[in-house]
Design a protein around this nucleic acid. Structure first.
Length: 235
DNA sequence: GCGACAG
DNA sequence: ATCTTGTCGC
């Protein structure tokens, strides 16, 4: 699934150059595909050490059942540098994708797609590597400007940068900050937004991404979260 | 030079 | 992102 890649441990200038290079290959239009399996991807990295955990959770559509899950724990080599997130997190994500026993039709990543200074956020970078449609679902803004948006679910407004519409600021839950949806690869912004809304089951993040977020943060494999476990130990 | 800055 | 318990609001 993942063939020859470029290195991820690069200097700031080399990484930036690579991004500009790769960005020219991004396809911002729909690719005819029947979507039956959707992957949500997220990474959590400890503050102290640099040990991190990536999680890929695959859900069926439209039944929205978890059909596969892959976790990978490793060390984050690169530091977090705004604009270079993919160089820090993809090395942790790719091993998890390799272990996956199913082939998702669509990837949703916790981070920006083309709503990025060089139009290559982590969702786009990942889409290029796997050669599949991808969507960026970020919880905050990296670049671009936007107006205020309505209070209801589905309300949104354009995210613009350098006279270009690079994404959509979308309200996915009342009374909560909106999320930033952008094209990752091989999909249109309209379709990306449609998917985010179709996968919204009442939480701020679309379900596959929310599940991946939970899986990446879960300290121990199993059904217990940190809350319920601590309660059990108190007894 | 100053402020902004995904996770 | 992470450090962290209870608590206020849709």
């Amino acid at each position: 699934m993942i063939s020859e890649l470029h290195p991820f441990e690069l200097s700031y200038s080399s990484a930036v150059k690579l991004q500009t290079d790769l960005a020219s290959s991004i396809v911002c239009a729909d690719t005819p595909v029947e979507v039956k399996l959707i992957a949500g991807i997220d990474v959590s990295v400890g503050r102290q050490g640099s040990t991190g955990r990536s999680a890929v959770v695959v859900m069926s559509y439209p039944s929205l059942e978890i059909v596969a899950e892959s976790i990978h724990e490793g060390t984050a080599t690169m530091p977090y540098i705004p604009g270079l997130l993919s160089f820090r997190e993809l090395p942790l994500i790719l091993p998890a994708l390799e272990k996956l026993d199913v082939e998702p039709d669509l990837f949703m990543v916790d981070g920006q797609g083309i709503a990025h200074p060089r139009r290559l956020g982590i969702a786009s970078h990942l889409g290029l590597i796997v050669g599949k449609p991808s969507i960026g679902c970020a919880k905050s803004r990296l670049c671009g400007e936007h107006q205020e948006l309505g209070p209801d679910i589905g309300n949104g407004c354009a995210l613009t940068d350098r006279k270009e519409i690079i994404g959509r600021v979308l309200r996915t839950r009342a009374g909560t900050k909106p999320i930033f949806v952008s094209v990752g690869h091989m999909i249109s912004l309209e379709t990306a937004v449609d998917w985010v809304l179709k996968l919204n089951i009442g939480y701020r993040l679309p379900e596959p991404v929310r599940q991946a977020h939970l899986a990446a943060g879960r300290k121990t494999a199993g059904v217990y979260g940190n809350h319920s476990r601590s309660k059990i130990l108190e007894r």
